[in-house]
Design a protein around this nucleic acid. Sequence first.
DNA 1: CTGAAAGCGCTTACAG
DNA 2: CTGAAAGCGCTTACAG
Lengths: 335, 335
Amino acid sequence: MDQVAEAAGVSRATVSRVINGAPSVDAKIREMVQRAIADTGYVPNVAARSLVTRRSNSVALVISEPDRPDNNSFLNRIFTDPYFGRITAGATSALRPHDIHLVVIPTDSTDHHQVVRYLRQGHVDGVLLISSHEQDTLPRQVHDLGIPAVVAARPTAPIAVSYVDVDQRLGAQLAAEHLLDRGCRTLATISGPLDIPSGLDRLNGYRDYLTRRGFSSVPSIEGDFTRAGGESAARELLAAHPAIDGLFVANDLMAEGALRTLQDLGRRVPDDIAVVGFDDSSAALDCRPLLTTVRQPVEEMAAEMAEVLMAHIASPGRLPRSVTFQPSLVIRESA
Amino acid sequence: MDQVAEAAGVSRATVSRVINGAPSVDAKIREMVQRAIADTGYVPNVAARSLVTRRSNSVALVISEPDRPDNNSFLNRIFTDPYFGRITAGATSALRPHDIHLVVIPTDSTDHHQVVRYLRQGHVDGVLLISSHEQDTLPRQVHDLGIPAVVAARPTAPIAVSYVDVDQRLGAQLAAEHLLDRGCRTLATISGPLDIPSGLDRLNGYRDYLTRRGFSSVPSIEGDFTRAGGESAARELLAAHPAIDGLFVANDLMAEGALRTLQDLGRRVPDDIAVVGFDDSSAALDCRPLLTTVRQPVEEMAAEMAEVLMAHIASPGRLPRSVTFQPSLVIRESA
DNA sequence: CTGAAAGCGCTTACAG
DNA sequence: CTGAAAGCGCTTACAG
């Protein structure tokens, strides 16, 4: 920096000002400094800058999952999950124009401690937190830290924190409506885990709507949001209720598994039984027949999370707020 | 830090020493300082530390892809690709014990400039670089930067840089051998893109081995490593060469697509035609029938990349080296 | 083994 | 609009 200042014949303060785009710099001087920067190939040291600005220009994406025995497969599951992939893509696209980088931190309760320490050390200016399971203590810990944070989906505990969500109940209702419209009369559902809000909300949204439409009972079975789980849940459900002709599956991955089971069972989709998924992830296009599903605009939601987080970082006093996206039905072949 | 020093009745230098585990500190003093740290809830400021140590304790994972028109789908493709997911998982698991964090940076040539600037600014201590396409100038740029770097797979250009790879040719040979062993006599292959080493090596490895085994020609068609690409390539290949009874597909994703085409065409797998994939990614288990495939230990390779990178960071003078993993055949149902 | 002091490379009131 | 100077919060030779 001294070199640049000398080359341009100004002080380091002025060099700093042109680098940071201070409006007060004389145009000619600005130009000279810029030339000097180009000539010397000078690049500011970010650590020194962070030390005084108290900004790191990066944020953490913390993905908090329930504990599982095998840690290796834990990382694997996270990094190959299409939902998390879409979140990462959406957040990256919103952050990039602001030159803010993303540090991805997968965690389960065994290393909450390390994550909290990382956040406290000032590595990042804020955190995007994905936490779905009910017992997770991380949202509260992050909240208590006082670091700017935005959570994906409504937190299970009532914490004063900003979050972004999709209208889960409405999505489930869209699925029910469509199944009814195409003439299905015996409806059922494979739900997500019922200890997380999205699992519960989709089940309740589906049931409540059908109740209003005169259904007295709607068979359901709890799934785990995995393909394999969808396969076995469908098998069990169909065994207990062979007459089902319309099925809402709470995410696309499970729907893909269910479709496989139906094929094995010789049920034609959608003729014998119509199937609607949830997410509109890439898995929906991997299904045969192509999956009709409730679209959740995950990328846009993640981008919004990033925007809200940047707003919190810029104005620390900002009150928490939630933004809810509308789901939409994407009709393809399965229903 | 001053608070801690005061509380413990020592100098800041001593506090710093116990935090950094300097061996020279008296046990009693160490204990007092640790108690003071716990009492005050002190957490070191990383920017200040980085400023003097010149270490950031984080590394970048740069994923460099060919240019595509739609940038949004670009991020999406990257973050939902199982190969990149496995890389991220493997690198994370190796880095985590050393408390080194990973900043994931997807890029195409439109923002090479920003990536280079990011690396120069000292945000990270080193870079893990995934770059597969031949025209990519990023590996050379990173090399010229002089920052510690490890590349996944042999670079297309002869650059003096450390890399980690799997023995691609051997993998293809394993596939050929197995197809021959099970009695296939009319062999073909769907290759990867031929402008990237892994695509070319797998094709050549397959062909060369079959040549040695007396085959005069082996039909092949160039694919693009995507599921859809595998579907159409298989259709084209089978139309031109209906007698094929053994097919090596250069990655699992394309194999999944090919399997679909074969099902559409009414060819039984493996009875009419045996199929072997490459990767042993999660896609192999999504196939019906389950895919027989050449396993590439991607997680372990990524972990090794991280280890080699850390070694380079620790000893800047270290000469570049390459490490090659052995592939293995995983026999399931498709061949 | 410990402390006083210098220094890492920036930014930003404060004067002028 | 610009510069001199203080200061951000650490680590690390250098003495002792």
